[in-house]
Structure formats: structure tokens, C-alpha cells
Amino acid sequence: MTTPRITPRTTSAHVDYVLGLADDALVSAQRMGWWISRAPQLEEDLALANIGLDLLGQARSLLSHAGRLEGEGRDEDDLAYWRDERDFRNVKLVERPQDDFGVAMARLLVLSTWQSELYAALQRSSDPVLAAVAAKASKEVAYHHDHARQWVLRLGDGTDESHARMQAALDAEWPWVAELFDQSHLDPALVAEGVAVAPESLREPVLRRLGDVVREATLEVPEVAPRVPGGRAGLHTEHLGRLLAEMQHLTRSHPGATW
């Protein structure tokens, strides 16, 4: 680890793009870790730990790549532990608490559907590292999607209570879906150069696949106004600061230490 410091945002669109995907995975892994020992049954503790570990692995590969692209000697831990919340680039979907199992599965369904379309396309990225990470992650998120889909079906078409709770969970998550397709903070040159996937291009396949699962679960696709985007520009909800405070506290209390 280099000398720890609070560092400003980067100026490279390429680095920012990779950081955005890395932070989506890192913050999701952090939220998923909360579930271990709190799941509805033991098998689910194992499954959610698996999913959290996959997401953490994606985050580590992407953060390391962002650090190398940046060329200032920052490694995965410098980027995870020594950036402040305004420098995190994740979408707001992933940063809010998810201590209801229905919410956790609704969010995992959205995230994994989007990630599976994204990583499928990114395998053709002109950035070979991004393409390689995407190829590995594609297999992982296919499993996450299957897992979330199975639960949304069970909860949607289970009991009256679970149907109502699953619908409420979808209603709670849906306003945050549109941000996944927002490209206002992405340099169009990155798409033109074949590095990045145009977020807008994922809207149709992602929403179609989500709608299919929701309807199969006897639920309704929520008709809600999208919340304003901004996560990719470091404009977050108030929840991210607390998540990072917990995640970063120990490391920042011991500057320069090796763990």
C-alpha cells in the first residue's frame, strides 16, 4: 500500500468507467455480507455468501485494473478504503440498506440482469482486461440471476403475505433501475473506441428480461417515476457515507499498516 491519503477524483473517463463498475460490485458485496448469519435458512446463508464473494472478486479485479490504468500506484485497497463517498461511482441502486429478504432478492434480480447483459457485451471490449474480467464474471452473474429469479418466483407466487411483500420490494427498487441506463456521465468517446458499453443499449434487454420474471412471478412491473441519477458522478444517497464509514474505519485508523 502506498502512503494513504484522501485522493481527489480521477480525470480519466476510462478510469472512471472502470471504477463505476468496480464500485457497483464492491458496495453490493458489502451489503450482501450483512446477510451472512441472518438468512431465512442455512442454505441461503451459503448462497448469499457465495454471491457476495463473487461480487467482491469482481470488485477487486476491476479496482486493480482502475489503479493500473490511472498509473499513480494505487492498488485495490487504496481505492476501496481511501476514497471518500463523493469519489465513489456506483449507482444508487446498490448502496441503500437491504435488510428485508424480498428487497435483497428484488435488487439482486435487477443487478444480476443488468450485469449479465453488461458483461456479455463487455467481453468484446477493446480493453482486454475489461473483456477478461467480463468473461469470468458472466458465468458468476448467470448464477446470481438464476438464484434471484427462483426466489422472486417463490415469493411472488408463494403465500399472500409473500406476494404482497415481494411486490412492495419491487416497488421500492424500481425507481432506482433507470440510473443503470443513464449515460450523462459517460464520455461518448469511450463507447466509440469500443472500451465501454453504451448504458442506454442495455435498457431494452434488461427491462424485457425483468418484466418476464416479474410477470411469471404473478407480480406487476411497477409504474414509478425514476429517481434522479448521479451516482456515477459521486452524487449519492445519505446511506453510502455510513456504509463507507463502517467499511473504511479500521483501515483508516492505522495509516500505513499492512494487514
Binding site: L46, A49, N50, L56, R60, D77, L250
Partner: peptide
């Protein structure tokens, strides 16, 4: 609160 991402992964796997 694990102090590095490597330690976080190891700990998650252990609890799993």
C-alpha cells in the same frame, strides 16, 4: 470492517 479486500474475502469464505 475487514481491513483489506483480501481479508474480507477470506473472512466471508470462512464464515460460509
Amino acid at each position: 470492517r475487514a481491513p483489506s479486500l483480501r481479508r474480507k474475502g477470506i473472512l466471508m469464505a470462512k464464515v460460509q
